[in-house]
């Protein structure tokens, strides 16, 4: 029952990512070339609603389905991990035209080659785990 909820939320996510074309390699190229407002509109309006939702949850101490208060943790301080890690991810985002969410949605869309992208991403995460102590954070 608990898992069924996540399955349905995931299905809705797959639908909106496909129908909004946010999983499109072409749309990501258009975004990084500043040739359309579409992706900026999606991220911007998601963010505007997200700020309102987050402030509402924090101010009114909203409970989750289990009846306990929703806790939204602050990110740990620092900048190096965010900037350098973010830049490496950005390189991969433009190459594949996908961030992690769309990787899964694209597989559902029939682009089975994205299974190999996901496998490579898992390897990338594994190598990060290996090198973690040697990287600036």
């Amino acid at each position: 029952m608990k898992f069924l909820r996540y399955l349905f939320i995931g299905i809705l996510f797959g639908v909106v990512m496909t129908k909004s074309e946010a999983i499109s390699w072409y749309r990501i190229q258009e975004m990084f070339r500043f040739q359309s407002f579409h992706m900026y509109g999606i991220i911007g309006s998601a963010l505007a609603c997200g700020v309102l939702i987050t402030q509402w949850i924090k101010r009114y101490k909203i409970n989750n389905a289990q009846g306990s208060q929703i806790v939204i943790n602050d990110k740990t301080k620092g900048w190096m991990r965010y900037f350098f890690g973010g830049t490496l991810f950005g390189l991969g985002w433009a190459l594949t035209g996908a961030c992690p969410g769309p990787l899964y949605v694209l597989v559902g869309n029939g682009f089975s080659i994205f299974l190999l992208v996901i496998a490579s991403a898992i390897v990338g995460t594994f190598v990060y785990g290996l090198l973690r102590d040697y990287l600036p954070h």
């Binding site: 890690g85 973010g86 830049t87 490496l88 991810f89 950005g90 390189l91 991969g92 985002w93 190459l95 594949t96 996908a98 961030c99 992690p100 990787l103 190999l116 992208v117 996901i118 496998a119 490579s120 991403a121 898992i122 390897v123 990338g124 995460t125 594994f126 190598v127 990060y128």
Partner: peptide
């Protein structure tokens, strides 16, 4: 894919 996994 590697850059996505490592970078994120």
């Amino acid at each position: 894919g590697f850059l996505i996994g490592f970078g994120t």
